[in-house]
């Protein structure tokens, strides 16, 4: 019997604590419609900026915003579980940045069945998966990643005089976001016969993998003089690898996302450029669209947030 008492006390301590805190925090917006924002991850500055933009918009619109994310960005199953769980709590709108553009379909089916409108941010659902499952998506908000990749390619072609041995660090294979950037970049380089891609490998969006993969690339191809990384984290990892190889300043690195760290690296001349997305605007637009849906007002099915080139001069 003492054991039972033990466990009950412990469970109350462990669970009751956060539960109590949570109740206090939510009193301000209690009764307000709940909007859920399920992110890919919360340990990335990009998504933290998005969260900030979303929270600001929710405060203005008087909505209660619930933000959750899986522990790991690529964990599509955990993201689905979170969505299933939140659908149980009577949310009015579901905003998602899908961890997988095909896998998300099963979760959207469940939201559709519960009659909860779905807004996608950053990553589109795969068109075939959407058609196969008859998905209803109220709105998509994201960057034009293809255009960003194309701009990055054009910039590299211009700054190298149209002649370079180019390496590419890809994101997780099969991710629509990274694939679009890659396609845009490759299409831009095709117009410049002097630009050849000598190596192209995934570093799974991660900084440490960007370091090791690019280190290996430098071993295999000593002639690399330009790098396009599909994200800044990978680019920053590669910058470290370049420094370790004693070749700082001799390889032009173009990243994507224009993170603060990347902006500093650009100012210091370690990186050449990055493509600035506006995650904060995306978060804001998503919540504003949710607010309009709640008032039964029409929302645009597709909103693109512009991408800008960030260089030392700009």
């Amino acid at each position: 019997m003492t054991r039972l008492a033990w466990r009950v006390t412990l469970a109350i301590l462990i669970l009751g604590g956060p539960a109590a805190c949570n109740r206090d925090a939510s009193t301000a917006t209690r009764g307000a419609p709940r909007v859920a924002f399920v992110m890919k991850t919360l340990n990335h500055p990009f998504f933290l900026d998005m969260q900030r933009g979303a929270q600001e918009a929710a405060d203005r619109a008087g909505l209660q915003l619930v933000v959750q994310a899986a522990e790991r960005e690529i964990d599509v199953e955990k993201q689905m579980q979170i969505i299933e769980n939140l659908l149980q709590t009577g949310i009015k709108v579901l905003i998602v940045t899908p961890s997988g553009s095909r896998e998300i379909a099963s979760a959207i089916v469940k939201a559709n069945r519960a009659e909860v409108p779905v807004i996608l941010v950053d990553t589109r659902v795969d068109p075939k998966a959407a058609a196969d499952n008859h998905l209803r998506i109220a709105s998509f908000i994201g960057s034009d990643n293809y255009e960003g990749g194309r701009l990055a390619g054009e910039h590299l072609a211009k700054s190298t005089g149209g002649k370079a041995h180019v390496a590419v660090l890809e994101g997780i294979p099969g991710h629509e976001t990274g694939d679009s950037r890659l396609r845009g970049f490759r299409d831009a380089l095709q117009k410049h016969p002097g630009m050849s891609i000598v190596a192209s490998q995934p570093a799974n969006w991660e900084r440490d993998q960007g370091f090791t993969v690019f280190q290996n690339m430098l071993q295999a191809h000593a002639d690399i003089d330009a790098l396009f990384a599909c994200s800044d984290l990978m680019a920053l990892g590669a910058v470290e690898a370049i420094a370790a190889a004693g070749r700082s300043g001799r390889i032009r690195v173009v990243g994507f996302d224009a993170l603060d760290d990347a902006r500093r690296a650009i100012a210091a001349g370690q990186m050449e450029a990055s493509m600035a997305q506006s995650p904060r605007d995306m978060g804001r637009l998503a919540v504003e669209a949710a607010a309009r849906l709640l008032k039964a007002e029409p929302v645009p099915p597709d909103q693109t947030v512009p991408i800008e080139l960030v260089t030392k001069g700009s």
Partner: peptide, 11 residues
């Protein structure tokens, strides 16, 4: 895991 999601405890 389910309960922590329902209670909106930070991930």
């Amino acid at each position: 895991r389910n309960g922590l999601n329902l209670l909106n405890v930070s991930s």
